[in-house]
Simulated assay, not measured.
Amino acid sequence: MQINLIKGHGSGNDFLLIDEISNSYTFSEKERAELARVLCNRNSELGADGILFVLKSEHADGRMRVFNADGSEASMCGNGLRLVSRYICEMRGQKEAVIETMKTDLKVCKQADIFPDVTTYQVEISPVSFSLEDLPLRLNQPTLKNENIPELSEKLIFTALAVPNPHLIAIVENNQMQSDLQKNLSEKVNGPNEFFPDGVNVSFVKDIDKGNIYVRTFERGVGFTNACGTAMSASTLVTCLNGLNDFETVVNVYNNGGKVQCVVHNNSDSYHIDLIGNATYLYTASVEVELEGRNFTVTTKEELLEQTAYEQLQTEAQAFLAEAMKG
């Protein structure tokens, strides 16, 4: 089977994008999971955090399905959605669109470049739920907001929410960020455990100053990533709820892959978040895949020239972060 794809990234969170609108192929559920395991293998010529399947929608401009590198399906992916938004908008010659995702339809649009020559898209992150049933998180209470779970950590204060991916978020100090605390905690709640039967994304958040935060995420099904779009959005919301940042105001969110911007909207009894960041294409390729043999061959590959501009953004972001995280 020959498949055409685009390799791209949002904040260094990289994906292979496969178009099922313009091409004649389609895949079974088993094939989607197997393609993710085979093509995303970091020891292969491609490698990625996951695959973005772009499909026709009955009622929206396009539909996105996201499969992680381990073959599991994610209900949403903010960084991946920016790439899909760009692909759909450019395909249709539009500056805005509505993308169908697993849980809901989301508004997306092209934005002014977040950094010179860095193609930028804004995507809606919603719905937001604090109900533990939606994660799920097994505790004898309806929500978890700024509370301790002694069995997981005596020191950390957690907030749990679904956006709609499940997230466990802690605002931490430098010494906690630099320790093995996050790694050990994340591996525990993403293995057999009594609290998170389906696993959970775990984010540590460092408040830098008003309008600037640093987020590092252990993503279920992936591990530590350069960035996780829904995690950065959920983390920004948590900082607003704690008074560290303001609603309806741009927050710069720094990550190991660069930076994005988030705006949290407070609609009296509900929230939604705008996630604004790069949608960078790395290369196009064609691959010949033999799923039964779990192997593939890259038949053509064309490198694109967009990464240079993004690396300049990344350098500037890392310099700011290095200075901010001193002490």
Rank of each mutant, 00 (worst) to 15 (best):
I171D: 12
V163A: 11
N165G: 07
N184M: 10
A162Q: 13
L185S: 04
V202L: 09
N165R: 12
N175D: 15
V189N: 00
N184D: 15
N175I: 03
H167Q: 05
S203I: 01
G191I: 01
L181H: 12
Q178S: 15
N193T: 09
F195H: 04
N193V: 13
P166C: 05
I169L: 15
E194C: 03
V163P: 05
V200Y: 00
V205W: 08
Q178P: 03
V200M: 01
I157K: 08
K188N: 05
E154S: 11
E194M: 01
D180I: 01
N201T: 12
V200I: 13
H167M: 06
E173R: 15
G191Q: 15
V205L: 09
I169W: 14
G199A: 04
E187R: 13
Q178V: 06
D180E: 11
N174P: 03
I169F: 06
I157H: 09
M177N: 10
S179N: 02
F158D: 09
P192W: 09
G191T: 11
L156W: 12
V189T: 00
V172Y: 09
V163H: 02
S153I: 00
A160L: 14
E154A: 12
E187Y: 11
F204G: 09
V202P: 02
G191W: 03
A170I: 10
E187P: 02
N165P: 09
V205Q: 08
V202C: 06
G199V: 00
K188W: 11
L168H: 04
I157R: 13
T159F: 12
G191N: 14
N190G: 10
F158R: 05
P192K: 14
N174R: 15
P192L: 04
P164R: 13
L185M: 00
P197I: 07
E154F: 08
V163E: 04
H167D: 04
E187S: 04
V189H: 03
N184T: 03
Q182G: 03
D180T: 06
P192R: 14
K188Q: 11
P197F: 05
S153N: 07
Q176E: 15
K188L: 12
P192N: 14
K188S: 05
N184L: 08
M177P: 03
L156V: 11
L156S: 08
E154I: 10
N184R: 13
V205C: 08
P166Y: 02
G191K: 14
F195M: 10
F158P: 02
E194N: 07
N175Q: 15
L181E: 15
L185G: 03
V200F: 00
V172R: 01
T159N: 10
S153C: 00
V200E: 04
S186Y: 01
P192G: 10
I171V: 14
A160P: 05
V172A: 01
E154R: 10
E154C: 04
E154N: 15
F195E: 00
D198Y: 06
K155V: 09
Q176H: 00
V200R: 02
I169V: 15
P197A: 05
N193H: 12
D198R: 14
G199C: 07
F196V: 03
A170P: 03
P197R: 07
N165Y: 09
A170R: 15
E154Q: 14
N174G: 12
P164M: 12
A160V: 02
E187V: 07
N184A: 10
